[in-house]
Design a protein around this nucleic acid. Structure first.
Lengths: 108, 108
DNA sequence: AGAGTATATCTGTATTTCCCGATATGTCAA
DNA sequence: TTGACATATCGGGAAATACAGATATACTCT
């Protein structure tokens, strides 16, 4: 059991993270990274994720805002992070998302 | 198909409604009304729901706040309303909640 | 070391949400 | 019709959120 939502506070933080169209949109786009982001080396996009700058260009908000939003999505276990060199790659945390869906179905 | 969440705005409104501990708590309490609320005529509680005053006493917020919160839960189809005489009874909208859970599982 | 790029963090302002008291509306009972 | 009760709506102050720009941090290349 890696996810539990034991505290209501955790669950509320997740709902808050999802209560913003930019954050929700990013989560949707990350379902098909190679389709939604124009990356040069589309090599291991699915594996490692998408870097902040690409997400920023797509969503059209400032760099600082996007960085903060991604951090929020990560704290709530909706995305995961990989640092490689000077880049930070974000991708969906399918385990965390499934855990949320399961919890909602069972306990909401 | 009574529920669809076609627009992202609808989904965001639902997440916003769930992003508050009082509203989330009310939704939980309404899973077992006869257990969580002390009503005199526990006759058709499951059928009709719980009146605003009982919910207000339990949650400990002002009457106006509780009324607004319940309206928000209703607009997002998380609870349903029945007016009987001078009372307004609220109960969980299990269909709406299940529709949300399904949508999240499928599309989030 | 120094410049350039990618990202995170800090600080501040505009907007939104939280929650209240006051007031309006609607129902019931005398 | 008057008064009591249940609920809804209105208006506002305090707190939180949404974003931005400036700056800090970290890595890369020369």
């Amino acid at each position: 059991m890696t996810e539990n939502f034991g505290d209501d506070r955790d669950l509320i933080a997740v709902f808050k993270a999802l209560s913003n169209s930019a954050r929700l949109q990013i989560l949707q786009w990350l379902k098909e990274p190679e389709k939604n982001f124009s990356m040069q080396d589309a090599a291991d996009v699915r594996e490692v994720g998408v870097c902040v700058t690409l997400i920023q260009n797509k969503v059209g908000l400032s760099q600082s805002t996007v960085s903060q939003y991604l951090a929020e999505l990560q704290k709530t276990k909706l995305v995961s992070v990989t640092r490689l060199g000077q880049w930070t790659y974000y991708k969906r945390n399918e385990k965390g998302i499934a855990a949320l869906a399961g919890h909602i179905k069972r306990n909401l």
